[in-house]
């Protein structure tokens, strides 16, 4: 099968590195699965919650976090397959209108962890169009590298909820694995954000 995504300009690891470096104070949710490896390779941070499961739940998790932390920018980074499993969550997010939430989709038009089978976006499903129809106030798309600066600026400071649809090259992710213990990852994140008391430690 010819795969147009093999020649897309935008490289996912470079974008992951920019997202982390340009948003040092943001809270990140990484969706199953290649976007988890991307964010880990770019720098495993306590302010990132990486999902080893919960496919279709990344944007919804970002919503709950954004509502709880309205002063913090919350950035969900996920893939096209993961987001396609949670299209309804885009409507749920848009209805809540969290001004501090950005959902970034790395769209390689493939299920990268299972053999690069085509996702619906390979057949033309327009995820930005879904977000627009759901009511996201800020939507950015980048198909080529020259569109990245504007897109990433919106992710960092645009009025949320922001939906950023980035067409990324279909290529292997760096297989950089974050810790697997979910309970520990949860407490690591909460301790970073809320302080030692939040995980039962004395300050």
């Amino acid at each position: 099968m010819t795969n147009r995504a093999n020649t897309f300009e935008i490289r996912r690891l470079a974008v992951a590195k920019r997202l982390l470096s340009e948003n040092p104070d943001a809270l990140f949710i990484a969706g199953l699965g290649a976007t988890v490896w991307d964010l880990t390779a770019a720098g495993d941070r306590h302010s990132t919650f990486p999902l080893w499961g919960a496919m279709g739940g990344a944007a919804a998790m970002g919503l709950g976090l954004a509502l709880a932390q309205p002063e913090k920018r919350v950035i969900v980074v996920t893939g096209d397959g993961e987001q396609l499993m949670g299209l309804g969550a885009l409507a749920t997010v848009a209805v809540q209108r969290p001004a501090n939430l950005s959902v970034v989709v790395f769209d390689n038009e493939s299920y990268g962890e299972t053999g690069m089978q085509a996702t619906h976006t390979a057949a033309g499903v327009d995820l930005a169009g879904v977000a627009r129809a759901a009511g996201f106030p800020t939507i950015v798309t980048a198909v080529t590298e020259d569109a990245l600066d504007d897109a990433l600026a919106a992710v960092s400071t645009g009025k949320g909820p922001v939906f950023a649809w980035l067409k990324v090259r279909a290529e292997p992710s760096p297989f950089a694995l974050p810790p697997k213990d979910g309970a520990w990852l949860k407490d690591r994140f909460r301790r970073h954000l809320l302080g030692p008391e939040a995980v039962g430690e004395t300050a």
Binding site: L27, G64, A91, T92
Partner: peptide, 26 residues
């Protein structure tokens, strides 16, 4: 309170996991 209407119950555990990460109960 934030009242969050869902499109499917599957979103619920995810939303509330995010809430807990952010220090809120749901």
């Amino acid at each position: 309170m934030h009242a969050v209407s869902l499109t499917t119950e599957m979103e619920g555990p995810a939303v509330l996991a995010g809430a807990w990460l952010g220090g809120q109960r749901g």
